[in-house]
Design a protein around this nucleic acid. Structure first.
Lengths: 342, 342
DNA sequence: TTGAAAGCGCTAACAA
DNA sequence: TTGTTAGCGCTTTCAA
């Protein structure tokens, strides 16, 4: 394949087919092969065909690391998510990935595991790959990571939140807005005693704060709050209802920071013979696909996850292709989906 | 930063800090910076400190594309999954990703969307990135993709299935074994009329075939099979039960190709007043975390997803680090988890 | 439209 | 232990 005329120092070659091999077989210059593959319109039909044949016959697969290094375009987009098993984030990632793939970009996925320290390490690795864009779940507070990201000059989309000072682009919604809306919704339903079951999560905390404020403004007793820590499972939801009931047996409405927790609360309520929504209204967060079809169907706060993914992909691709995109903030909003459980 | 003494042709430089900048600041050669970062034991304490200081002060983040090109080691592992929202695969990916990250590797994620055509395109892109290893969900049948993968020389782990002829390494379990085991399990429970609700999926088809065989061997009527196509939702499960009942009202045991479908069947059964497991036994597949804590708790087939991810990461890392790993087959098995629904 | 030359930023191989 | 040199495989730039 690649020839090697007794060089003074030889490098262990990877042995793979390169542009040179293809060029030789096609009888053209390497540059022509590159053009035929990347900008076929700039190559005459005749040579184009020769090159394509040679590619076929050799099984050539271009080395994107070399291409990326030479062109400063990696055709890679990195995404950082807190967790990969949480369906609510993965819907966004699925849409992001699909849109990127169709435009010729690959996705690098990192999980921060809800840890700021891990996120910082991850971001450093991510920047090292020189992706053409970075998708962040959540916003990045001021600190070394933010500084490095800024310095890297890589386009960034922050998501799932709003802040007046994004790094670059932002596609999100207001968590305090949600807390308020859910509070008002339950007040309108005539509920008198609220509880919140939440995981340890800054965004959930903000939903809670606004939710509690609404309760106070309406002269309701203090909101009972149960923090399940990092265990966002259905089981935690069941245990949480037990705790809520022990603290305040008269609670008649529970807002959960995720649908899975809400499902746990609902399961435990059913087991205990508490009527839902008769004695207890339950509302979740996320609108995970299947909660709509359960019985009783779960009321929840709906975020259009796939839409966030698609819009983010659009922004990032535009930037990568050199189109001008104004940094800015997109509020995709949310909606309260009322179903059986309220 | 980077100087540029009036060169004949100048390239648009990315402007980022490079080894050269760091080397100059630290007063050493670029190679020493590389050593200090990658093999610090080979550098004297004095120079190491100087380099680290310079890295700090410049905010240098090594360009991994350049490093990968030069060393033929990308420190990238690619994973291909059919879908990112399906929790059953993502548990594996989460474990894979976590293990890789701790060893200094990044994950590239591609989704094939259950399409062979998309998978082929994806694989081509993946090979182009020259990852140090590839994780496949499922096995790759003979064809152009398999040939290219083989030719690339990249270590591969196939998973979630068994075949006597893997590309390289294989970590899986027997789908027909599962079908048989579930069939025998339900026979032992005294069930007399089986149905299967399955998505369009080659592996589910094999579970079904073995399941149907057991029914036949035990002189039971032909298994009623409902194919929900690509829609693997809870809703499809509900609709499927309706179909099953319309075809054969005397069905007393249903095996579903995923827990979500099983949940749908269970929901519909409850709504119709069918006693579970009294009149109808339901068993799922996957043991998605939350089905254990529902009421009634779902019986299912458990696959240790995270274990597959960890073992695959181990294999791939060993290979990437040049350690010898025998190509081979690991059968991680499965277990039937008996809970309330059977 | 095609080709030649010169790097992209890093590390393997060799020499000191 | 440190430095020098020569690429890795591709694409940008310039010239024909």
């Amino acid at each position: 394949m690649t020839e090697n005329n007794n060089p003074k120092r030889s490098r262990r070659m990877s042995g793979a087919i390169t542009v040179k091999d293809v060029a030789k077989l096609a009888g053209v210059a390497p540059m022509t092969v590159s053009r035929a593959l990347n900008t076929p319109t700039q190559v005459s039909a005749e040579l184009l065909k020769k090159v394509q044949d040679a590619v076929q016959r050799t099984g050539y697969v271009p080395n994107r690391m070399a291409g990326g290094l030479a062109s400063s375009r990696s055709r890679l987009i990195a995404a950082v998510v807190p967790s990969t098993v949480t369906s609510v984030f993965m819907e966004t990632i699925e849409a992001l990935n699909a849109t990127l793939f169709d435009a010729g970009y690959q996705l690098m996925l990192g999980q921060s595991s809800y840890s700021a320290e891990r996120e910082a390490m991850l971001l450093e690795e991510v920047i090292g790959r020189r992706p053409d864009g970075i998708f962040l779940t959540g916003i990045l507070p001021p600190g070394p990571s933010r500084t490095k990201l800024l310095a890297s000059g890589i386009p960034v989309v922050e998501t799932w939140d709003l802040t007046p000072t994004p790094i670059d682009m932002l596609i999100g919604f207001s968590h305090s807005g949600i807390g308020r809306a859910v509070g008002n919704f339950l007040v309108a339903k005539g509920r008198k005693r609220f509880a919140m079951v939440k995981a340890e999560d800054e965004r959930a905390r903000r939903r809670y704060a606004a939710f509690a404020e609404v309760a106070a403004q309406n002269g309701l007793p203090e909101v009972v709050v149960i923090d399940v820590g990092a265990s966002r499972s259905l089981k935690s939801g069941r245990a949480a209802l037990a705790q809520v009931l022990a603290l305040a047996p008269d609670v008649d409405a529970i807002f959960c920071s995720s649908d899975l927790l809400a499902l746990g609360v609902m399961t435990e309520a059913t087991v205990r013979g508490l009527a839902v929504p008769g004695q207890l209204a339950i509302i979740g967060f996320g609108d995970v696909p299947f909660v709509a079809d359960m019985s009783p169907a779960l009321s929840t706060v709906r975020i259009n996850g796939p839409d966030i993914g698609r819009q983010a992909a659009g922004f990032l691709i535009d930037r990568a292709e050199g189109r001008t995109v104004e940094p800015g903030i997109v509020d995709v909003g949310f909606s309260i989906v009322e179903r059986d459980s309220t």
